[in-house]
Amino acid sequence: MRLRTDIFVSALLRRVFAKGGFAAVEAKGADEAGAVFIRQHFRDGLETLYGPAPQSFFDEETTGARLFEQRLTRKEPDRIREMLERERKFDPDLWIIELEAEDLGDIVPLVDERQNPL
């Protein structure tokens, strides 16, 4: 069973703050099952966008876990915003979280691209 999105986001924000970073909810989606997108801001003004990993990355061991993949890496904020606007047209219930942290380390669970089954 997957953790409710509002609880997952709350825990994510707490982890960021505990590591000395900053986080904010830019857009609040569905409390129960909204998709989560993460904008990582860097000091040089660029951003990286993380989105939900495709279902093909999930198996019995990760059932209930939320995994993310990098969608755009170190791009201009306008490019990130455009992609998020397209995503929002497709899914108006999504969440957008902004993080200011140089290294996400163990804060955001990422898929291992080397294990991509496709």
Rank of each mutant, 00 (worst) to 15 (best):
F17I: 04
T73H: 13
P77R: 10
E82R: 13
Q40D: 05
I97P: 08
D91F: 07
R79K: 12
G105A: 12
T48C: 12
F58E: 09
L99I: 15
S56D: 09
G29E: 05
T73W: 11
A23T: 04
P77G: 07
T62P: 01
G45Q: 02
K28V: 11
A35Q: 08
L94R: 13
L104P: 06
L104H: 07
F22G: 05
K89Q: 15
Q40M: 09
D112I: 10
E61M: 06
R2Y: 04
R15L: 09
M1A: 14
I97Q: 02
D59K: 04
L94P: 04
I107N: 03
Q40N: 13
R15H: 03
D91T: 08
E76V: 12
T62A: 04
G34N: 08
F90S: 14
G34F: 01
E98Y: 01
W95K: 04
Q70I: 15
I97H: 00
L3T: 15
E61Q: 09
V25H: 06
T73A: 14
A33E: 11
E102Q: 12
R43A: 15
E61S: 14
P52A: 14
R71A: 14
R114I: 01
A53F: 02
A11G: 09
E61C: 02
A101H: 09
G29V: 00
P54I: 00
F8N: 03
E32Q: 11
E61T: 13
P77M: 08
E60Q: 10
E113N: 05
V9N: 07
L12A: 05
M1C: 09
L72R: 10
L12D: 03
E26C: 01
Q55P: 03
F42W: 05
A101F: 03
R14F: 04
R4C: 08
R79M: 13
A35W: 00
L118G: 10
F68G: 03
V111D: 09
I97L: 14
E61A: 13
V111I: 15
P92K: 06
D78Q: 12
E69G: 13
E113G: 08
E98K: 09
E26S: 11
E82P: 00
G105M: 06
P92A: 06
P92D: 08
N116S: 12
Q40F: 01
G29M: 05
F68W: 10
G64H: 00
R15T: 07
V25W: 06
D44G: 06
E69V: 11
L104A: 07
R2K: 13
R71P: 01
D106A: 15
R39F: 00
E113Y: 05
V9I: 14
E60T: 08
A35D: 15
